[in-house]
Write a protein that binds this DNA or RNA. Structure first.
Lengths: 213, 213
DNA sequence: TGGCGTTTTAAACGTATGTTTGAAACACTT
DNA sequence: AAGTGTTTCAAACATACGTTTAAAACGCCA
């Protein structure tokens, strides 16, 4: 019990602090103080700060990616060779993400902030770790996206998929500030699921745009 | 001459290093070494590291915002009361951005990376500085956007404008990696202007989406 | 209960950071 | 050329960091 509790406390504290202040700006002393464990515990249980960062991601992504893998397999079976439907693909992904943090909705927001940080702070080791560990699922999803948009040129699809990724990352990365702004500007509270309900039509329309520049 | 040269060298070096490694990860010693000036020069000329960061943004944003202000005034005059056109508004913004770094295209990419960092790294002081200093121009642009999309509900427009911002920030933030990937995947080199030509139709279609979730 | 591997602890290590200092070098007016 | 305000410089300062250490405390099986 001792080992699990200490390691878990550290992961909990690190997850929250990293998402609030970034990786470089969060010290091991911040983390161990919040977790109420000894400073040396991080190096004892995780080896280094870098490994701790990776462990934070792995704890969230391992179950998520496993579940997404299952969901995609089930959907491919249902399709029986027919091409995938775009809105359905987007729904599969967002539902999987939402349900992977269903017990504590705040955790999805926290994790999306971490993912955003991973791509904006240096953390080259993190990007390498993520691609190595989870790259295959995203390649698989990308193939299904291609099936669902046969009318697009490879070039248009390439760019627009990255635009979708950007809108999604940016939005979910700052979903807490955005929902707060929404409540202030529109007088209407919103949760992550509401934001996603607005987001998906935007993404689908953008991907399938027929406006010529 | 001495003062200007030293301060300029520092700003040049800081701009580049910050965009490559982030703010916390770039030390004053990194900067002053690259700029080939004495370590104490930063504190002498700028007062502190925070003020240096703000100065880097001000150097780029002051001329950009001044130019955008002029461009918007000219466009409003041309409209003579008619509602603004969406694609035209997007073009005005992107053209102004592109031309504000026309002499050295790489500077726009560098600056967009900095802007992304400003919103993902802690740097609360920076966000406050940016809103205080340049908020009025973005409010003005936002009003024109509203004119150009009268068919949208305030709620849809609110969310979709932020999705657009996200797609844009993410894309231009990583435009160097993206163009490299594009060349690898599509066998077709691309520059920032090409990326924007793909981006604008995506944004316009997303904003005007009529897909129901 | 005694012994042993695991975990926790307080303290220290070496290094890097932002900032300050006071003297030296410089530019420019009188 | 002397004097004055500005800028540069090498050095030091205080602080914070990630990591290591060696002893103490703990958990558990014999």
């Amino acid at each position: 019990m001792a080992q699990k509790d200490t390691a878990r406390s550290i992961l909990d504290a690190a997850e929250e602090l990293f998402s609030e202040r970034g990786f470089a700006e969060t010290s091991l002393r911040n983390i161990t103080t919040k977790a109420d464990v000894n400073l040396a515990a991080v190096n004892y249980h995780f080896g280094s700060k870098k490994s701790l960062i990776q462990a934070v991601f792995a704890r969230f992504l391992n179950p998520f990616v496993a579940e997404l893998d299952k969901v995609l397999s089930r959907y491919e079976r249902e399709l029986e060779g027919r091409p995938a439907d775009l809105m359905m693909l987007l729904r599969l992904l967002s539902d999987t993400a939402l349900s992977s943090a269903a017990d504590k909705p705040q955790r999805l927001n926290i994790f999306m902030r971490l993912l955003g940080l991973a791509y904006s702070q240096g953390q080259g080791h993190l990007r390498r770790f993520l691609r190595l560990e989870y790259g295959h699922v995203f390649l698989r999803y990308s193939d299904l996206l291609t099936q669902s948009t046969p009318e697009l040129s490879d070039e248009d699809r390439f760019w627009r998929v990255h635009f979708m990724l950007g809108a999604t990352m940016f939005t979910l990365n700052g979903v807490d500030s955005l929902t707060a702004m929404a409540e202030h500007d529109l007088g209407k509270p919103a949760v992550t699921a509401d934001v996603i309900n607005h987001l998906l039509p935007f993404l689908a329309s953008g991907l399938q745009s027929s406006i010529r520049g």
